[in-house]
Design a protein around this nucleic acid. Sequence first.
DNA 1: GCCAACGTTGGC
DNA 2: GCCAACGTTGGC
Length: 150
Amino acid sequence: MNYWLMKSEPEAFSIDDLKRKKTEAWDGVRNYQARNFMRDGMRPGDKVFFYHSNCNPPGIVGIAEVATDAYPDPSQFDPKSKYFDAGSSRDNPRWLLVDVKFVRKLKRTISLDELKSDQALVDMPLLRKGNRLSVMPVDATHWKHILTLE
DNA sequence: GCCAACGTTGGC
DNA sequence: GCCAACGTTGGC
């Protein structure tokens, strides 16, 4: 089983939204590296840290689970969607998504500040300077360590 | 709102 | 294939 971190702006889609909806198709990922993680790395049952970005404070707020293998993101075919991609075809879809299932909220937000200041987490991809990936892997050791902070 | 970092696009 | 211009992300 693998561990992941997925970012969302809480104003767009928060951990409470996921809790209410139970499962969500994680559409709108338009970055090849993030797509490849979903396509090649994610399998149903993998665990996901739900991360709130572009808010105060940014940080990990909950746990989710990968619910499906990757499949074509329907929004890329919808001309009315902001995620529409005229360069993608149904025969050869460019963008994929997975369904993500709510597991639980953390007892408290583990803030980006706190993650940054933790010596055990210096190698986390999330904390690399300039990293803007919205989907990224988490080491099992980092996963376990972060849960001890809760 | 600013801006650094990064990805993508397109002219050449 | 290079690289300047541009758009986006996301912390601050």
